[in-house]
Structures are given as C-alpha cells and as structure tokens.
Design a protein around this nucleic acid. Structure first.
Lengths: 105, 105
DNA sequence: ATTGTTTATCGTAAATATACGATTATTATA
DNA sequence: TATAATAATCGTATATTTACGATAAACAAT
C-alpha cells in the first residue's frame, strides 16, 4: 500500500487484529486443530494431514509461532509443536471482551 | 500464489478463517467497535473516527458486509451500518467451539 | 564416513490486500 | 434547476501473502 496505517490504531485493536490474522487462513486453523487434538504434533504429521507442500506448512507454522499461538521445541531432527496455552487464553479473553462490547445493546 | 489451495480445507475451517480474516485488520475491528457502541453508524461517522480516507473506509465496510458481519441500509444520501447479530452470533459460536477443541487436553 | 530423514530457509512467481485520489451516482438543499 | 453533501466505485501503486521447488542445516542410521 502507499502507506501502512496499521499503527495508527489502538493497541487493543491491533492485538485483536493480529490474533485474527493468525487464524485467517484455513491451513492455520487446521494446524491449530491438529495440534490441539494430539496435544502435540511433529511437523511431519501436520504436513501429512494438510494439502500443502512441506515448505508452505513450515511457513504457516512460523506465522503461528510469531503470533505466539504455538510454541515449538526441537527433538533431534524433528520439530514438536504445541499450543501456547498462556498466549492463546489471553487472546480468547480479548476476543470474548470484543464480543461483549458488540453485544451491549 | 501459484495456486489457491483454500478450498481443499473443510467447510468449518474455511468459515472460521473467513470470519477471522474479516477481523484481521485493525480498521475493521475499530469499525465493528464503533458500530456496536452506537448500535448503528452512518458511514461518515466512521470515516471521522478512523485515520483513513473515505474510499478506504468504504472498502473496509464492504468487506465486513461481504463477510456478513455488518448489514447496511441507505437513508437518503447516507448509509447506515449495524451489526448483523444473527451472522455475528453464529461466528461467535464457531469460534467458541474452536476454542473448546483447543482446550480438550 | 556416507547416506537418509527431517525441517527451516531462500528465491521467486502469482494472487490478494491496502491505500489513495478522482470520478460517479444519488439525494438533499438553496 | 443548480449546487452541495454523501458514499460507492474505478483505476492504480505498492505491500503483503501464499505457494512451490531447491537448497541448506542438523541429526540419525547404516
């Protein structure tokens, strides 16, 4: 865009938008579901389940890590991902708060 | 992208992602808040509050309409927007369901 | 040591999203 | 009827996202 105006909004608006953005692609929703189901997932297991190339899945995983929704640890050649409950719960809180605001009338 | 793989995911994953996408820009979060606060907003009121050009706000409004989160009616030269409670509540439901799935362990 | 596994990163192409000014269309007002 | 107000749409520039194959890096197995 000509200019990026995103930081001219409030902190809470930006935070909520960032969280929403992290879940704005079905692949990332699917990843979150897969990880939640098994409590923890190896990268390869996720690649198997998604209709995307390994490099693309890696990219989506990176975004979920950056957003803080997942945390990752390395075990040998394998990468284990699990849901970052702390951050995720914080976001659920923001979301519910937002939902409440939109329901006050 | 070379190809768009979005429709290779499940309907519920796509729906949730679409909802998240609609809220993935702080301007759209701000619009939803502004409309909720006053129960109904004229386009001009929203433009006044946001740090964006009128045409850009119109574009964001259109996306919220497309996603079904807002409904709009025309009154003379003015456009009134309000939250489409039915659709919005449905999305809240999907979201809460998703949250539950991620908390089953 | 060589080979295989696993996953992240790089480079790149193509699609989408964001932002604006200018214009248009519609309605209200003078 | 002419002018002002309001908001949608068009055209366009630029930024970001999505997707892939190829490669690299790190470890495991032979």
């Amino acid at each position: 865009m000509a200019q990026n105006k995103k930081n001219e909004f409030s902190k809470s608006e930006i935070e909520l938008a960032d969280f929403a953005r992290a879940l704005s692609h079905p692949a990332r929703v699917a990843i979150m579901k897969a990880v939640a189901e098994k409590n923890m997932c190896i990268c390869g297991e996720i690649v198997e389940v998604l209709p995307l190339a390994q490099s693309t899945v890696s990219q989506h995983l990176k975004e979920l890590l950056n957003a803080g929704l997942l945390s990752g640890t390395v075990d040998g050649t394998k990468s284990c991902y699990c849901i970052n409950r702390k951050v995720f719960d914080k976001f659920i809180g923001s979301f519910n708060k937002f939902f409440l605001i939109t329901q006050e009338n």
